[in-house]
Design a protein around this nucleic acid. Structure first.
Lengths: 338, 338
DNA sequence: TAGAAAAACCGAAACGTTTTGGGAGATGTC
DNA sequence: GACATCTCCCAAAACGTTTCGGTTTTTCTA
C-alpha cells in the first residue's frame, strides 16, 4: 500500500510538501502540486485515515447507537426509517457512520463510552434507548457530542430531536372526541419512555379541554409490542365494555388491539374506533387501514444527523429540534354509535 | 484522554510492559499486572483503536456497502432484514460495522475501493448491487476480502452467500402448475440482477418438466418496484387475457400486480393466481395474503457476516454458501377455474 | 543593487499504540 | 561456583499522517 513517503520520494520533494499539496494548502507551487497529484494517481494512492485521525484527533466518524436492532424490530419500521434518514444526511457529508449495537444477546461487556472512545468517534446519535438504560447516564456525563432521538435532554454536549408528543397525542384524542367518543381507553408504551409520558399528558389535555373526566383505569401499558398491545386491549375491553375508542401509543400496539377486537367480535370502526401513533408502513396495509398520528421518521434521523454535524463543525449551537406531527385519517376510526 | 504512557508513569513501569500486561501476554508478573490494571481503571483508560489499528494493520472493522438505502427502500424490507442479520453476527464478534452508501444523491466522488482503503476496513459485505455497477468490477479486482450477497462470484478474495434461485422459482411455478395453471406469466426484475436470470431459469425448468411450452411473450420486467410491477402486469394481462397465473420475482412487484388485477376487475385468486418471491413483511398483510417463496433474509446477512469473519480469521476457506427457500402458501393462489 | 517581502519548501516532532531484540536478575543444574 | 535457563522487564523503532518553526529561493521595492 503506497504512502505519502513513496510519493515524496518519487516526486523528489519532502513528505511535508506532499501532505500540504494533497490537502490544498497555498504554500506549494502549482507545478509541484500537479506533479504530486500525478504521482499520487500513478501509485494509486489512498490516504490512511487511521494515521490522519490519530494525529488530527478527529476521526470523521459518527457512531450510531441503536438499541435492539434485531430480527423482530424489522416489523416496526420506525427505527429503520430513522436510520435511513441519518444515513441520507451523513452520506452527503464527509463523515462515515459506524454502527454500535447494544442488544445484549452477546456479552458485549464494553460500556457505551468505552465503545465510543476506543473508536474515537466525533459524535453519536442515539435512538431507541430507554430512560432507565445505564448507557443514558453515561451519555449525559460524557463529553462526547451526542444527539438523542426522542429523549429531551440538553447540555453542552447533549442535544435532541423529537416530535411534539403532547400535541400529537392531544390531536389523536381530540379526533376521537370529535367523533363523539367519551369513553376512551389508552394503551401506552411503558414508564421508561419519555414519549409515553408525553403522550399521556396529551391524552389528559384533550380530555380536560373537552370537559371529560379522567378515569385512571382506562390507561394501560403495552410495552410497544404487538403481542402485549393485544393483551392489554383484551383486558381493557373486558374490564370496561363501555369503552368505544382506543388510543394506542404506537401503531404496532394498535395492530395488536385490532386483533383483540377481532377476538372479541367487536367491529372496527363500527363498534370500536382505534387510533395509533407513528404511521408505520403496516398502518396503510392492515384491514381496516389504521388512523394514526404520523411522525416524519426519516426526517427525525435526517435532522438528527444534520444537528450533530452542525454542532461538530461549530456551525450551530442549537441543541433542540421539535418536529411536527400529522393526523392521518383512515378507516379505523368512525363516529360513535348511539 | 489518558494514554498508555500515563499509566506507565503512574505505575512505574515501561509502556511496553503496560501494553503487554493489558493484552494478556505471559511475560509480566501477576503483581505488576494487577497494579497496571488498577491504575488503568483509576485513570479511566480506553485504548485508542486508531493507534492500534495503525501499527497492527488491522482495523477490526468491516464495511457494509448497501446500494440505495433510501426512504423508498424501507417498504422493501429485504435489505433491512439482511442488515439486521449482519448486525447480529457482527455484534457478537470483536468487529464493528461501518456503513458505506453508494446512493449517488450527493456526488460521492470516491470509488468503492478508495472508501474501503482509506478506512482500512478488514473486509466488506455487499448487498443490493447491480451486475452493471462499476463498483462490482472494482471488488473483484481488489484484494479486500469481500462477501457478496446474491451475486455468485468467487475468487481468492471474493465469496458469496445466496439462495438457490433456480430451485426457488421452479417451486413457485410448479406450485402454480400443480393448481392446474398452464398459461403462466412472469414478471421478472431486470437483466442486471443475477437473481432474475436464475429465477427465469427456474421458470423454464418447471414448464419443461410439466411439458408446457414456453412463450417468450409471457415474460416481462418490473424493475423490482411496486409501480413498474403494476404496469408490467397491466400490460401482460391486457395483451394476454388467457393468462391465469402470475409468477413475480419479488413480493413488491406481486403487490403491484395485485393492484393491477384490481384495476382490471380480476379477482385474486379466483380469476388470477399470483405468487411472489421474498416473503417480505407486507406479504402477510396485503389482502388477499400473498403466496410466495420465502428466503431467510436475516440468515443471509447473518451467514454473510459469519463467512467473512471466518475468512478474515483464517478459520475457514469456503467461499460459497447457498441457503434454502420455502414455499409459503397463502391466499393469492388457487386452482384454475375451468 | 541592496534589502525586504513573499513564495516555496523542508526537518523533525507528534499522535498512541505494538513489537523486536535484547538485558538484568533470579533460579536451577551439575 | 559456573553455567544455563527462566522470569520479568525495557528502549527504541515502527505504523502514516499533520504541523510547527524554520530556511532557502525568488520576486519586489526604492
Amino acid at each position: 500500500m503506497t504512502t505519502i513517503k513513496d510519493i515524496a520520494k518519487k516526486a523528489g520533494v519532502s513528505v511535508t510538501t506532499v501532505s500540504r499539496a494533497l490537502n490544498g494548502y497555498s504554500d506549494v507551487s502549482e507545478s509541484t502540486r500537479k506533479k504530486i497529484a500525478q504521482v499520487a494517481k500513478e501509485l494509486n494512492y489512498s490516504p490512511n485515515s487511521l494515521a490522519r485521525s490519530l494525529v488530527m484527533k478527529k476521526s470523521q466518524t459518527i457512531g450510531l447507537l441503536v438499541s435492539g436492532f434485531t430480527k423482530e424490530s424489522v416489523k416496526d419500521n420506525f427505527m429503520v426509517e430513522v436510520l435511513a434518514g441519518v444515513n441520507e444526511y451523513v452520506s452527503g457529508s464527509s463523515y462515515d457512520l459506524i454502527l454500535f449495537n447494544t442488544n445484549s444477546s452477546k456479552q458485549r461487556e464494553k460500556t457505551y463510552t468505552q465503545l465510543c472512545r476506543e473508536r474515537r468517534v466525533d459524535g453519536v446519535i442515539i435512538q431507541g434507548i430507554r430512560t432507565d438504560d445505564p448507557y443514558l447516564k453515561e451519555v449525559v456525563d460524557s463529553d462526547i457530542p451526542c444527539v438523542l432521538i426522542d429523549i429531551p435532554l440538553e447540555s453542552d454536549y447533549v442535544s435532541h430531536v423529537t416530535t411534539d408528543n403532547v400535541l400529537g397525542a392531544e390531536k389523536a384524542v381530540k379526533h376521537l372526541i370529535g367523533l363523539g367518543h367519551e369513553k376512551i381507553g389508552m394503551i401506552n408504551g411503558h414508564e421508561f419512555a419519555f414519549v409515553s409520558r408525553e403522550r399521556l399528558k396529551g391524552y389528559h389535555r384533550a380530555l380536560d379541554k373537552a370537559g371529560i373526566s379522567f378515569n385512571p383505569e382506562y390507561i394501560t401499558d403495552g410495552e410497544f409490542t404487538e403481542e402485549r398491545g393485544k393483551e392489554s386491549a383484551l383486558q381493557l375491553l373486558n374490564d370496561h365494555p363501555e369503552i368505544t375508542a382506543l388510543f394506542c401509543a404506537s401503531d404496532l400496539m394498535a395492530i395488536g388491539a385490532m386483533a383483540a377486537a377481532k377476538e372479541l367480535n367487536l367491529k372496527v370502526p363500527e363498534e370500536l374506533s382505534i387510533i395509533g401513533y407513528d404511521d408505520i408502513l403496516l398502518a396503510s396495509y392492515v384491514s381496516p387501514t389504521l388512523t394514526t398520528i404520523a411522525q416524519n421518521k426519516f426526517g427525525l434521523g435526517y435532522e438528527a444527523a444534520r444537528l450533530l454535524i452542525g454542532l461538530l463543525q461549530n456551525e450551530t449551537d442549537t441543541h433542540r429540534l421539535v418536529m411536527k406531527t400529522e393526523l392521518k385519517e383512515r378507516q379505523s376510526t368512525a363516529e360513535v354509535k348511539k
